[in-house]
Design a protein around this nucleic acid. Structure first.
Length: 972
RNA sequence: GCGGGGGUCGCCGAGCAUGGUCAAAGGCGCAGGCUUCAGGAGCCUGUCCUGUAGGGGUUCGUGGGUUCAAAUCCCACCCCCCGCACCA
């Protein structure tokens, strides 16, 4: 362990000193520009974060070895509420959080106290994260580092927003948000107790009237207005009569504040108990019928208006409440209701649903055996009825012009019509209430006025975004359809808030641009920030005109430079560096950013840059699981990255997060995995040391290589090919498997073979070893760069392996025959073992009989036929019969052909081609060659004969059973 | 609801895009053996059923279909996970 850490530190030092990851424009080299979503410095990074960044680094390192001038920069996202919220929670003495900081992150108590200041907190974690990134060996060009609250960056964002505004993509309006009335702030998921997302829904308020008095019943199913039999009020709670805009409404007392937040003018005129209104009649605006107001305890005054229309035919709650009322005459009496009033209230059926009776609500209630209106099962019953009615329900004739429509269609039509006729209005309400703010106050819905939006809903903009996406590579490709959907769905996105850190809207300084909106095109900023720092430019010098020229080539440099009090040369330099590195070749992030940041990036690029500068690739990855649970702060199961590095080493951690899962999947991490990775690397190191000792100056001429050497080298090419193909798709797991495990398997077979083989030349072995190791080290470098640098040096190579080239498969070393021979040996061994198992024999001597030449000839002819479709026995027999020399043993041939044909027809096409290319195999020689190994593994004597060998020992006449690729076997 | 991903031999998990070499990689677990003073670990062998000759049978969520041939292609259904915003 100490040893690995020492290596890491050593090479990180060397890289930094040699500045090998600092990328400047180089016209002689193709460039490759990779960025990863910059981190929020509000807590230390953990191993989960490490995955995304490591993947990006591996990508960068791979492309560098493929000969590209790779730029991988990094910055820090101070914008918005994450940093602020963290500081505030600490200031509020959130003990859980403070404990995490002290115990999990091992931050000194004294230091944590200082974190109530957001800037102190941010800059501390900024450095912490940066150090971690260095310790894990990311190949970042640190000269380009910045934060999103740097005044220069603010200028850049201002420029971006002016551009968006001029393009007509900024709009303003009001929209509903979850809101804490006490804090006076919008609440999102992370602001609520239990991290619940406030779900905002739109209720339809249908205006039942009593003369001029409006009873706004809140419903999510306006189409059922035709089945209303009564209105429910909660008799035990307070209601008010209030002037709402130009009308007089009856609503629950609790509703008043909500209406105010929804921008209605509300003035309470009178307060009274719900029971005071029981028994009064109101008119249904849709049917003009007069219906009574009845009492129901299930009515929640906190939900919407607290006034509810009753549709007992289709709403289980209403059905049960009505039944309850009917059965308790005492209640009727209490509220002065005549039994006759109740008797006349009968469920009305207005929707026809297959599988249900006239009264679906009654069916559901009976099925679930619900007796009381307070039964929680009613929730489920309601959902069930609704689900069926929504999908399969048809409106009945008693719904007038909606008759025959599906519920699905009628729902919206009824709503729109009622609103248009002034018989209804709408009200936002939380669907999953109660939602509690962290301050324990119940949240409500507020309509925020004059909110600024980026209008991703614009059709022509969507078209551009689709165009970009269509020409982009998406890794993994499976997510493309999700991007397509997100582009279609997005609409106005609130882009500024009144609090937090960041850039102020240039035209309305009260607002601060929020973090998902100031992080959409910043990749461009990396290409110029180097110059800003180098020349110590002032923010004021970065005028909109300067940016226009640098990024878009608009204007004349001399004029711009003069106005900005800036050297024209610097503007040119920035422009050409931008033009060199842009467009962005690859964008990395966690897959959770697909529906927001990544898609915003696409949109904003298309809005601001010409098509040739749009991003070319997006690569996303899943998260890291720790013992089955997602690694995240709230679960308390995190391992801070730096702690992991100290414990397991950088290369093992890199390997761990990338080798256990492919892009889309979540990766499993555990100390055991990290440990086994470390051991795997240590074994490689040990082996490499051995090889290094032996293979200095290994120069072996090709002709001293034996079959098994050629086999190993041939296999090596296949592994190189596979690893390269995998890396091109960022299937790092696959690549690692190919390089580390599959290659290793072949290599172990090779070792077994040469160990068993008497007199295998050492020079050949050394040559093969060094070939394998050379390729293996190169291919492992992107994932385990530290160890590989060390091995590289050990192998006597000069310079950095980080800058060496990725190996390419050498076609000339691919040896089909050697591979087929070896496959034969493996098959023969396996078959023999199988026979031993089936018979329970312990063999003394084993005889193999390889197929004779005519069998091969027939076999190959069949293959040739099969190449152009299925080979037919009759055809082949005819042809064979025509041939002179085969006439003598037609019966034998027919026998064999029948068996072989079955084989031939199920061989895949590419293997057929291979076999045809190399013709008959010298099976006898192949087995002879592996005789030492076979003897050793089978613990028996081994003899090989050609089946037609007259000298053969064959007491059981097995030889005739041989077929190509399947020698006959006799064991005694 | 809308959208996305997924259901593989005890468990985890490849393979499915380009159907055949798939009873289906690898790891874990389990069983036996070797090694070690011991502990850990390492190595080897086995691990669907069945068979005294390399074979046969039944498997890849469920049910159909296409094909000489399907874990792999098509259709329907069931189940699980994730996202739906002003919040990163």
């Amino acid at each position: 362990m100490e040893f690995l850490r020492a290596i890491e530190e050593k090479w990180q030092g060397k890289w930094e000193k040699a500045k090998i990851f600092e990328a400047d424009p180089d016209p002689k080299k193709p460039k490759y520009f990779i960025t990863v979503a910059y981190p929020y410095p509000n807590s230390p990074q953990h191993i989960g974060h490490g995955r995304t960044y490591t993947l990006a680094d591996v990508h960068a390192r791979y492309m560098r070895m493929r000969g590209y001038n790779v730029l991988l920069p990094m910055a820090f996202h101070y914008t918005g509420t994450p940093v602020l919220a963290m500081a505030r929670r600490l200031a509020d003495n959130d003990t859980g959080l403070i404990n995490d900081f002290i115990n999990v992150y091992k931050i000194p108590k004294e230091k944590v106290k200082e974190f109530t200041d957001p800037m102190t907190l941010a800059s501390f974690f900024h450095q912490e994260i940066k150090t971690g990134m260095k310790e894990i060996g990311f190949s970042i060009d640190w000269r380009r580092e910045f934060t999103t609250i740097d005044p220069h960056y603010n200028r850049f964002i201002e420029w971006q927003f002016q551009k968006l505004r001029k393009a007509g993509y900024i709009s303003r309006g009001s929209h509903p948000v979850g809101w804490c009335p006490k804090d006076g702030n919008p609440v999102g998921q992370h602001d609520t107790v239990g991290d619940v997302e406030p779900e905002i829904g739109e209720f339809t308020l249908i205006k039942f009237r009593q003369n001029n008095l409006v009873f706004p019943t809140a419903t999510l199913r306006p189409e059922t207005v035709f089945g209303v039999t009564n209105i429910w009020l909660n008799p035990k709670t307070k209601y008010v009569k209030a002037a709402v805009d130009a009308e007089q409404w009856i609503v629950s007392k609790e509703c008043v504040e909500k209406l105010t937040h929804l921008n209605r003018k509300v003035k309470v005129l009178e307060t009274f108990g719900g029971k005071d209104l029981i028994g009064k009649l109101v008119e249904n605006p849709a049917t003009k019928t007069k219906i009574p107001i009845l009492p129901a305890d299930f009515v929640d005054p906190k939900n919407a208006t607290g006034v509810v229309m009753s549709v007992p035919g289709h709403a289980p709650y209403d059905y049960v409440a009505l039944e309850n009322l009917r059965k308790t005459p005492s209640q009727l009496k209490e509220y002065g209701l005549a039994p006759k009033t109740i008797e006349s209230v009968k469920p009305i059926s207005l929707i026809e649903v297959p599988g249900y009776s006239e009264i679906p609500a009654a069916d559901a209630v009976r099925k679930m055996n619900i007796k009381e209106q307070t039964d929680p099962k009613l929730e489920e019953a309601t959902k069930e009825v609704y689900r069926h009615e929504f999908h399969n329900g048809i409106m009945k004739p008693n719904t007038g012009k909606y008759s025959g429509l599906s519920v699905n269609e009628a729902k919206d039509k009824v709503k729109q019509d009622l609103i248009a006729e002034g018989k209804a209005t709408t009200m936002y309400e939380l669907l999953n209430r109660p939602v509690l703010c962290r301050c324990k106050t119940e949240c409500i819905v507020k309509i925020v006025q004059d909110q600024w939006f980026i209008d991703y809903g614009k059709q022509e903009w969507k078209t551009l975004a689709h165009k970009n996406l269509d020409n982009m590579e998406i890794l993994p490709e499976e997510l493309r359809s999700e991007f397509n959907n997100v582009i279609d769905w997005l609409h106005e996105k609130a882009c500024a808030r009144k609090s937090g850190m960041g850039t102020r809207l240039p035209w309305d300084k009260d607002w601060i641009i929020e973090s998902l909106s100031d992080s959409t095109i910043y990749m461009a900023y990396y290409t110029i920030v180097k110059h800003i720092k180098e020349h110590k430019l002032q923010p004021a010098q970065l005028t909109d005109e300067v940016f226009d020229y640098v990024f878009l080539g608009i204007g004349k440099t001399a004029e711009i430079a003069q106005k900005a009090k800036l050297d024209a040369k610097i503007i040119e330099e920035m422009h050409s560096e931008f033009m060199y590195f842009y467009p962005l070749d690859s964008r990395h992030s966690g897959r959770d950013l697909v529906p927001n940041h990544l898609t915003f990036m696409i949109f904003n690029h298309t809005a601001i840059f010409p098509e040739k500068l749009w991003p070319r690739q997006i690569a996303t990855n899943g998260s890291v699981m720790m013992e089955g649970a997602k690694m995240s702060k709230s679960f308390g199961n995190i391992i801070p990255l730096r702690e992991g590095l100290a414990k397991f080493g950088a290369d093992p951690i890199r390997l761990s997060v990338l080798s256990t899962a492919e892009l889309l999947q979540d990766a499993e991490f555990s100390p055991a995995i990290a440990k086994s990775m470390r051991e795997r690397l240590e074994r490689l190191y040990k082996f490499a040391s051995e090889v290094a000792k032996n293979s200095r100056n290994t120069k072996t001429s090709e002709n001293s290589l034996t079959a098994i050497d050629k086999w190993m080298l041939s296999r090596l090419q296949e592994h190189i090919r596979k690893a390269t193909e995998a890396m091109d798709k960022l299937a790092v797991r696959k690549a690692i498997h190919s390089v580390l495990y599959e290659l290793e398997q072949d290599f172990q077979w090779y070792q077994k073979r040469i160990t068993a083989q008497k007199g295998h030349k050492k020079s050949a072995t050394d040559f093969v070893h060094s070939q394998v190791l050379d390729a293996q080290i190169r291919m492992l470098t992107p994932v385990a760069p530290h160890l590989c640098e060390e091995l590289w040096k050990m192998m006597g190579e000069k310079g950095f392996v980080s800058l060496a080239s990725w190996p390419t498969a050498d076609e000339s070393m691919i040896n089909i025959e050697a591979e087929e021979n070896e496959t034969l040996v493996m098959d023969v061994l396996e078959d023999t073992l199988n026979i031993m198992k089936a018979t329970g024999m312990t063999p003394k001597k084993i005889y193999y009989y390889t197929a004779c030449s005519w069998k091969w000839k027939v076999y190959l002819e069949m293959l040739e036929k099969a190449r152009h479709g299925e080979a037919k026995l009759s055809e082949i027999m005819k042809e064979l019969a025509a041939e002179e020399d085969s006439k003598k043993n037609m019966k034998e041939i027919a026998n064999f052909a029948q068996k072989a044909l079955k084989e031939v027809n199920r061989i895949p096409q590419d293997r057929r081609e291979k076999v045809l290319k190399m013709k008959a195999l010298d099976e006898k020689a192949a087995i002879e060659d592996a005789k030492d190994l076979l003897k050793q593994r089978l613990k028996a004597q081994v003899e090989v004969y050609d089946e037609e060998d007259s000298q053969r020992y064959d007491p059981k006449y097995k030889a005739a059973l041989s077929t190509p690729f399947k020698p006959a076997i006799y064991i005694e």
